[in-house]
Design a protein around this nucleic acid. Structure first.
Lengths: 152, 152
DNA sequence: GCTTGACCTGGAGCGCGCTCCAGAAAGTAG
DNA sequence: CTACTTTCTGGAGCGCGCTCCAGGTCAAGC
């Protein structure tokens, strides 16, 4: 498969593919008689996995290291697994952080709703000058758990 | 409070604070007799909230728009609430995506463990050339739900 | 008064992760 | 064969979000 097709199938531009190869994210590609890059299905799977690592917010330097290790073969399996486990933990931590932030947002949204119905002053400090210290964040009343969707 | 103190308390550098003011993320600061910026507690609360928006991955353009709306006063309350609700939804979607990615990672980690114990070939394509289509992702065996922590 | 240090402004510089371009060569169609 | 398209390489450019710097002002301590 030539780079144009591969780009279409992988969702990465031809320029990006060449760039990734240059920096070592993709292995040196097999070339055809005329010097053009020739990609296989395995490359497609690897590109897809790279995109997942990116979607997980794994930093470029880590993706580079992972790629380098992969290129070294089976001897690096343990190291790679450790990297994935570490990143898994980071992801779980991020999920927890997001949950907290959603709660903050819910509280602030409720605060806004109060201000919209009444005729209060602005006072836009996040909706919780007093409480909010990462703990539980008790909703002011009970009308939270909504999204733009559930009211629009 | 002068910019140095404020920087220390807000966690943003003085340069960043001036930069934020320039681009409109922070309102034009009150100046003292000598022309120096003078910050109050309300600014501190706003800076903290801006950091939360950033931690939520709200794009800079949206934070700018939100700040601009806030500067316009109470007339924009509804609009701001809508923005927060929309971003709340984005956050919840991201949480779901992360949950999927964690599952992918778990599957791949298990795959690695298999390869480490046996003496298989490399075949590093993400650990699931066959399955994995965003659905459930059944763990190959039952030994998942670990982190770097739980084994190290 | 003098030194020291925090602060001011405008603008340059930077690291990241691409993205685009020029100029050449090779494959493909008619 | 010509014409067109794709790909090639090396390198420049870009948008973001700061970060740093020069050269100057102002305030406080000695």
């Amino acid at each position: 498969m030539k780079i144009g097709d591969f780009a279409a199938k992988s969702g990465l531009s031809a320029d990006t593919l060449r760039y990734y190869e240059r920096i070592g994210l993709l292995p040196r590609t097999v070339r055809d008689a005329g010097g053009r890059r020739s990609y296989g299905m395995d490359d497609l799977a690897w590109a897809a996995f790279l995109r997942k690592l990116q979607a997980m917010d794994m930093p470029m330097r880590d993706r580079l290291e992972y790629s380098r290790l992969r290129a070294e073969g089976d001897a690096t399996l343990r190291t790679r697994r450790k990297m994935l486990e570490a990143h898994r933990d980071a992801l779980v931590a991020r999920q927890a952080e997001l949950a907290e932030l959603v709660a903050t947002l819910d509280a602030k949204i409720d605060h806004y709703i109060d201000m919209e119905s009444g005729t209060q002053e602005s006072f836009d400090d996040g909706g919780q000058t007093h409480d909010d210290r990462g703990s539980g964040i008790a909703p002011p009343r009970e009308r939270s758990r909504r999204g733009a969707s559930a009211r629009a």
